[in-house]
């Protein structure tokens, strides 16, 4: 079973991204869970969301304390939240930032696992012309976890967007561009 914890700020779509990831994994035949931790619901407040992805039915219904992967949708959270808490050392952290991993180390509590970065905000601004980094982050974490191929992801996301944006089809292509670019531009890990 793969366990993923998302850190974002209210309004950035971390919850939506976790649900889209659950959708994507579901479509590959897996058992999934996608759930947010509800706290004070206000724009900008730190929020947490979770995914479990498994080949067998999932029965546990607690939050995730020892994730395999952590996704940070907003790098200003690094100073506010202990994002690597419990993160497995053979796992990885993915951060939306325009900084290099070396510049972030001081906020990662000496985390020894793999560190990936992507400038999802830039990708979002350039492709979607608005700050919705979640689809780019989703694409990057799919690549890192290897839960599906790029072709599967692109097909799956197109189907999701067609459904989600049925009333504003003009945003489907920009979102697809963001997905494709994020998949190619995520860096870090062993490189």
């Amino acid at each position: 079973m793969i366990e993923i914890r998302w850190h974002g700020r209210g309004g950035q779509g971390a919850k939506t991204a976790s649900l889209l990831l659950a959708d994507a994994a579901f479509n590959t035949g897996k058992y999934i869970q996608g759930f947010p931790e509800y706290g004070p619901e206000r724009m900008g407040a730190p929020i947490t969301a979770y995914n479990r992805i498994s080949d067998t039915p999932i029965r546990v219904h607690s939050n995730i304390y020892e994730p395999d992967y952590v996704v940070v949708v907003d790098d200003t959270l690094l100073e506010a939240v202990d994002v690597t808490n419990g993160l497995k050392e053979d796992g990885a952290i993915l951060i939306n930032t325009n900084k290099k991993p070396e510049q972030l180390l001081e906020h990662l509590n000496g985390y020894k696992g793999k560190i990936y970065t992507i400038d999802a905000t830039k990708i979002s601004m350039e492709c979607i012309k608005a700050n919705f980094p979640n689809t780019a982050m989703l694409s990057a974490i799919v690549k890192i976890t290897g839960i599906m191929t790029k072709e599967q992801l692109l097909k799956d996301m197109r189907d999701s967007f067609k459904h989600k944006f049925a009333r504003k089809p003009e945003v489907i292509e920009p979102n697809m561009q963001a997905v494709e670019r994020a998949y190619d531009e995520v860096t870090g890990g062993n490189e």
Binding site: A22, F35, H61
Partner: peptide, 12 residues
């Protein structure tokens, strides 16, 4: 059924 834990969790 449990609020949030079940009501708001997406599962198979």
């Amino acid at each position: 059924y449990d609020g949030f834990i079940t009501s708001h969790s997406v599962e198979n």
